[in-house]
Structure formats: structure tokens, C-alpha cells
Amino acid sequence: MNTRTAFSKTLALVLGLAVFAAISGPAHAARIKEIAAIEGVRSNQLTGFGLVVGLDGTGDQTTQLPYTSQGLANYLQQLGITLSAQALSQLQMKNVAAVLVTTQLPAFARPGQTLDVNVSSMGNAKSLKGGTLIATPLKGADGEVYALAQGNLIVAGAGAAAGGSKVTVNHLSVGRIPQGAQVERSVPTALQEGNTVNLSLNASDFQMARRVAEAINRKFGPGLARALDGRSVEVKAPMSPNERVAFIAEMEELPVESSIGAAKVIINSRTGSIVLNQAVTLGPCAVAHGNLSISISSTPVVSQPGPLSGGQTVVSEKASIDIKQDKGKLIQLPAAAQLTDVVNALNALGASPQDLLAILQAIKSAGALNAELEVI
């Protein structure tokens, strides 16, 4: 064997081991930052009432919306312009639209930073395209102003109407202003308070809470972290702000072996969607399924009276109802210990997603489906 051949085989072996390690190791691990968050580090919702001006006749189309005219009157009064009640009633609001402005104030946001805002019409404006949002204070749940929004709207849509016909592409009553709000006040966080920080898991899982605490103790020393319950893990952290931030940054990168959650079947009754996780198993059972269809047809029948009889023409309907039920045979479903086997067993029924909603509930009631049914 020459040197080149030996090198090629060695390189292939190394690459094979690397691929095997990549598949068998990190693929089943998740970082702490992906499964948990630091308690107290959260965003806050902000909202405000504003006016969009400069519309091309597509604003609020009636004077029966008092908040639009009142909002405009309040804004003009701040500019030193006072309108009488008669003048206020004669305002035409076709170029003005009342809107609600919403955004999220992220954690650690400082005054002067900018935020993206969403603008939604709250009246009967046809379109916000081409409009400009005038200065709108954004308040938090405590009623305090934390940001100020203003700017030109971006509306990803188009529309046209003529002669009673109307064509609309996308939604024209909602727009967005990138970096349209400026933070005026910051929200303090409790990150630097006390000698501990708490990790809050995204989902309640006692096994995952124990594994997170064990991973932190292996890295930084025993007794540093402890699981308080199925969702919270308490971790002792340095007191210095710089050291605490560095400690949290390193802790969030620690890998934790992911565990299989509780077996669940998620059912969306509105769309007919069904989602099963990998922990779902199926016991042996038998299912009979058949389709039932009902058709109703109505035919107009005209009863014409004879000549000179003095009767009247009567129009009635003749309805016919047809019920058809397809024969369904009893199908035996074997026990399935893996998700693939469960899917194959359910596909063997040949039922539609809407029918599977009822079949899965019946199998669950019979005790053959080892999973929790959740309807959303």
C-alpha cells in the first residue's frame, strides 16, 4: 500500500468519525439559552392612539367616528388652534385615519434607541398607504410614556376600485414603520439584584430542570445550581456586574441533553391539522370507518290554473333528500411503539384529516392511544 492510498483511507476514516460524532452527539443536545430564559429579563408591550395624515381620500369615510375628529381637535389644540363645535362637526376626515400604534420595548432598552412599530386602523379607512403617522406617545401598562412614534408608513399592498368593483392585494389597513419610535424611558431590571439568578424553562419539565442544574454544577462547581421546581432553576452568580454578565453568557452556552417530552397529539379543529410528537405510541385496536353523505336538491314547480278559472299561479318547490352511507370494514391496527409506525397505521385507515379528528378521539377514549389530546 502506497503513502497516498494510506492517507486517503485515514482521511476517510477521520471524516467518517467526525460525521458520526456530529450526528450522535450535539444533534441531541440544546444550549441552555434555547430552553430557558433569565427571570426578569423580558420585553414590555407599548401601545398608543394616533392619527395618520396625508391619505389620498382613503381615510375614515364618515363623521360618525368621534375619536377621529376628537383626536384631530386635541392635536390641533396642542398647536394653538382651537376649533368650535360647529367647525369640528364639519371636518372632512377622508385624508385622516385613527390608528392604534403598538410595539415592544425590549429588555435593557435605553433612551435614544429606536423601535419598529405596527400601525393598525381602528376606523373604516380604506387604506393607510402613503400616510404619515404624527407624533404618538406610546404607553405601558402603568400608563407612563416610554416611547414616541412618528414616521411614514410602509404598507405592503395595493388596491383599486371603480364602478362598484374592487380589487385588493394584501391588507391595506395595517402598516409598519421601521425604527419609527424612539425610546424615552428605560425599564429597570432585577438582573443585578441579590446573589442569585433564576432560570425559567420554556416548558415545565422536572427532568429538564434537573439536567440544567447538573450541567451548571459540572461546569462551575457543585452546589452552584439547584432545581426549585419543574420550571425554575436557581443559580448563584457573582456580585460584580461585569463578572455576572460574563458568567451568564458562559452559562447560556452550556449544552444540555434534551429529553422526550410528554406524548401529545395537537389537533386544530378549524383547519383539520394534526401534529404528533415523537413520544406518541399506539396500542392494538380495531377501527371501522365509513363515509356518510347527505344531498338535498330543490326543483321549482309552477302550478298554472285553468283558463277562466279565476285561480292564481302558484310557485312551489319540490325537495328530494338522498342519504348515502358507504360500507366500512373493520381494520385492525397493530401496536406501534414508534412515531413512524403510528403514522403508517393511521394512513392505513384511508381517512381524511377531518375524519381523523374523530377517530383519534375515539381511540383515546378506548385507551389505545398513549398520548394527551390537545385541541387548539
Rank of each mutant, 00 (worst) to 15 (best):
T3S: 09
T3E: 10
T5V: 10
T5R: 11
A6P: 00
F7A: 15
T10W: 14
G16S: 13
V19K: 05
A22M: 08
S24G: 10
E34G: 12
V41M: 09
R42G: 01
S43T: 14
N44A: 06
T47E: 09
G48F: 04
G50E: 12
L51S: 06
V52A: 05
L55W: 09
D56E: 12
T58P: 01
D60A: 04
T62Q: 15
Q64W: 07
Q64H: 11
S69L: 10
G71E: 01
A73R: 07
A73I: 05
Q78A: 07
I81M: 05
L88D: 00
L88N: 06
M93E: 09
N95M: 01
V96E: 00
L100Y: 09
L100D: 10
V101E: 00
A109C: 05
P111H: 08
N124G: 09
A125D: 06
K129R: 11
A135K: 04
A141E: 12
G143Y: 10
E144Q: 15
E144F: 10
Q150E: 14
Q150N: 09
A158C: 02
G159S: 13
A161I: 07
S165R: 15
V167H: 04
N170E: 14
N170P: 13
I177Q: 00
Q179P: 08
A181L: 03
Q182D: 00
P188G: 08
T189F: 10
L191A: 03
N198H: 11
L199F: 15
A203K: 15
I216W: 11
I216D: 09
G223I: 07
R226I: 03
A227L: 03
R231D: 01
R231T: 14
S232W: 02
S232P: 00
V233G: 06
V235D: 06
V235C: 04
A237S: 09
A237K: 01
P238D: 04
M239A: 15
P241Q: 01
P241M: 03
N242K: 14
R244P: 07
V245D: 11
A246F: 04
A249Q: 14
E253P: 02
V256D: 07
S258L: 15
G261L: 03
A263K: 13
T271Q: 05
I274F: 05
V275P: 02
L276H: 04
N277K: 07
Q278K: 13
A279I: 06
T281I: 04
L282E: 05
L282R: 06
G283Q: 06
A288M: 10
H289I: 13
I296L: 13
S297H: 14
P300F: 08
V302I: 15
S303Q: 07
Q304E: 11
Q304A: 01
G306Y: 11
G311Y: 07
V314E: 11
K324T: 12
K327C: 00
L330K: 12
I331F: 01
Q332N: 11
L333Y: 08
P334T: 14
A336M: 04
T340F: 02
D341W: 01
A345H: 03
G350N: 10
A358M: 12
Q361H: 08
A368Y: 05
A371Q: 03
E372C: 06
E374Q: 13
V375L: 13
I376A: 01
